[in-house]
């Protein structure tokens, strides 16, 4: 089943600082919903450990995460593909950064499909859960970015 998440956030830092932050896998992992960690494999490819908990269903995925169409400092696109014990997920997304006078507008778009028990049992909750996690994730992300810029 198809899922779509899209939201625009604001961060009070210049675009270059935000761009720098989203190159850091540890910081980036914060904003990808359900992402536990991102391990670089080189060549803009990562292994993403994704752990989705939706209602009664929990599914862990070891996924591939790949960045492409990289335009510094405007953003990039990404592809995610993973198989887990309770199903599979795959999707694509985009991070777009726009400068404005107060800082940076940060747009996150992700579209994907899930199959298996997440679709069968979790479908009613998965999008709402994803949005909630994305908001939480962005707060964490923002704090980390600000923290790392202050340091």
């Amino acid at each position: 089943m198809a899922i779509r998440l899209e939201k625009e956030y604001h961060i009070d830092l210049p675009r270059e600082d935000v761009w720098y932050a989203i190159q850091n896998p540890d910081i980036l992992a914060q904003i990808l919903p359900n992402c536990q960690s991102l391990e670089p494999k080189g060549n803009n490819q990562f292994t993403a450990h994704i752990d989705i908990k939706v209602g009664p269903v929990r599914s862990k995925f070891e996924s591939s995460f790949e960045m492409f169409d990289i335009h510094e400092p405007e953003g990039y696109k990404f592809l995610v593909r993973g198989n887990g014990k309770n199903g599979s997920m795959n999707g694509q997304g985009e991070i777009k950064l726009h400068s404005n006078k107060d800082g940076t507008n940060f747009t996150f778009i992700a579209e994907g499909n899930v199959a298996g028990i997440l679709a069968r049992v979790g479908q009613r909750l998965i999008e709402a859960t994803g949005k909630k996690l994305m908001d939480q994730g962005f707060e964490n992300f923002k704090n980390k970015v600000i923290e790392s810029n202050m340091a």
């Binding site: 089943m1 198809a2 209602g55 009664p56 499909n113 899930v114 199959a115 028990i117 679709a119 069968r120 049992v121 479908q123 009613r124």
Partner: peptide, 14 residues
Amino acid sequence: YDDDGQLVTGSMLD
């Protein structure tokens, strides 16, 4: 079933 053929009423929850 959704357009991908996923059974979205696959338990007593739905």
